[in-house]
Design a protein around this nucleic acid. Sequence first.
DNA 1: GATGAATGAGAGTTCATTCAT
DNA 2: TATGAATGAACTCTCATTCAT
Lengths: 206, 206, 206, 206
Amino acid sequence: MTNKQILSSVKDRQLVEKRRQQIIKAAITLFKQKGFHRTTTREIAKQSGFSIGTLYEYIRTKEDILFLVCDSIYEQVKRRLEEVIQLQASTEDTLSHVVRAYFELIDDMQDEVVVMYQEVKSLKKESRDYVLQKEREMVDMFKAMLYKYLPYKISEVDAELVANNIFVQGQMWGFRRWMLQKQFTLETYIERQLYYLRKALAVKVP
Amino acid sequence: MTNKQILSSVKDRQLVEKRRQQIIKAAITLFKQKGFHRTTTREIAKQSGFSIGTLYEYIRTKEDILFLVCDSIYEQVKRRLEEVIQLQASTEDTLSHVVRAYFELIDDMQDEVVVMYQEVKSLKKESRDYVLQKEREMVDMFKAMLYKYLPYKISEVDAELVANNIFVQGQMWGFRRWMLQKQFTLETYIERQLYYLRKALAVKVP
Amino acid sequence: MTNKQILSSVKDRQLVEKRRQQIIKAAITLFKQKGFHRTTTREIAKQSGFSIGTLYEYIRTKEDILFLVCDSIYEQVKRRLEEVIQLQASTEDTLSHVVRAYFELIDDMQDEVVVMYQEVKSLKKESRDYVLQKEREMVDMFKAMLYKYLPYKISEVDAELVANNIFVQGQMWGFRRWMLQKQFTLETYIERQLYYLRKALAVKVP
Amino acid sequence: MTNKQILSSVKDRQLVEKRRQQIIKAAITLFKQKGFHRTTTREIAKQSGFSIGTLYEYIRTKEDILFLVCDSIYEQVKRRLEEVIQLQASTEDTLSHVVRAYFELIDDMQDEVVVMYQEVKSLKKESRDYVLQKEREMVDMFKAMLYKYLPYKISEVDAELVANNIFVQGQMWGFRRWMLQKQFTLETYIERQLYYLRKALAVKVP
DNA sequence: GATGAATGAGAGTTCATTCAT
DNA sequence: TATGAATGAACTCTCATTCAT
């Protein structure tokens, strides 16, 4: 799965993987600055450290690059979120720990996250659906946590809502920096969001 | 303010205003379908009902159109939000009423809202800042409401946070339709968000 | 029919016609020198006397140019052949007159004819079929003449064969110059071909 | 002669010959489908069964491949024509036999012949002249036959004309299939062409 | 001898913008 | 004011050819 679906004329699977990481890294840097549409394939090639011809040995169209980028970021975020959940799995107040870890993760991958949310919509339906599936899965992780760690039974609809709220509040930290950063550090942001989350969920932990 | 800053070679102020409304309407229709970058000025002219030459009598660059569109939408949303606040100003549980009205407004202007949030980032810094100022003002309206109607004194930081949360939950209804619509109608969405909002704010109203 | 099927973004029909004649003329000149594939659209634009952008206001793809060229040449050859037939319609030995006129016509349009036969095959099936239909019609004119002016009844199969032979002997004069021109002038070529044609058809005229 | 003039970095003469046969076979297959210009060297390498690198060990440019192909086909046609002439050399009505054999040969090598005539023009002058020399030689064979087997003395000019006509009528069977095949089988085509040829030449044989 | 990754000139095409009418 | 033909910079993508392994 993942990159596999994008054809490359180069046979060496390892090399393909390496080159694609270079492409992704370069593309994120550039998309961050000027967005997908204003970034040219030549610029991506140059930033990747090879020629335009070489770039096209590893992708077929410019859209492929966008897909690679979005897919890679979603995959990373999701993987890191999974790791966190696995680790925290037995602590008390796991909910808070995971939400905190999620917000930290977003902060850490800030640039990537911004790029991703700005550009997924430029993917054509098929690729977009594929990528958004991962978002669905992340929200589902939050739902699963709510079911598991809440001291009472939450309805499915409410779990869906709260999970989405958490998810979006994470994005918000990436996206609305320009508005939030005057008053919040990551730490205060997490702390206050958790405060209200616990109140909303009537969880009394720490 | 607003359009005034964009130069037009046509002198008749009224005509300028009329034509620009046509342009904005046409552009929103098209941006909704294909986004700003994939829409051509020719298409906008055609959809507006006049020639490409005429289009350029009322704007100077393609970016101007984007600015016109974003500015117009923000302005509308903001104006409608102000109206709502004015109207509801004396009811008990004004908070709920306004939030509800805001969510309904977003639902009503769904297409415009999506277009706006997808494309503001394509504006160059200066125009973007100008437009985002309106977003700041909207958030401030929510903050003002919290100060005014909450039965206790909320800290500025918390007001900022909650106002942003409300604001973003509105956007969320416009943006995350693909994820939410299986389980929510506008009514249930509003109802459940308000439920959690009240719990978080420890407001016990209805 | 003809050009009509190729879309142009320019509205003025007369202008379209005029510009396309320029394009056709330029393209023939260039195709003659280097063939379709080795000629660039930029070169065609330049030779046409306008910019690359303007070229693309009158055609959509490079293939369109090839179609325009082939179609135009076939149309001309066919039209001139029809005129000749009309004019000669009552003379005795009309057959010889028409064949002679046809050979002269080929000689006159030598460059065009060579270009046409070299490049039709590069058209995609649909366009090619459309153009070749005109060749079919020309052969049919010869067949019609054989039926009408031969002093005996020729079978359909034989009419088909002889008509094709005449047609191809015309092309041959355009195509095989490199081989024929050492020994033939147009006049001697026509004279000897007609000599053998009459013998083959057992027509004794002049 | 022949391939010898095309340089190869590989020393083993036999291997060169073997590889080139592979290349020629692959190229004909591909040129038949998409023509010379639309076929890439990579495709030729793949179809030949080796890598692009290896391909370039046996040729220097893409044009070399075209030359190899054209030359090889001309050589084959010519060789087979010579064999036929040798064999039939003593029969009465040799003329008919050879012409018949020539038409059958064309039918047999139809694909190759079509490829060849479509693409020779893409060779650069020098190579083209080299290849066309073989065509000259074939026409000369027909001329020689006319001198030898006609019961009267034919002028050189007429011999040239008739030889070319025969030659072109052969090509015609390869090239104008789309027009001829509704009414002719190879057999009827040969039979009717011979019928008219004999009448034209006033040969009364069978 | 064989391989295939790398190269980059160059091709076709688009589209924001201008300006004469 | 309105029009739309003209422009050309800029973009994506291809492919013949090379060369280190």
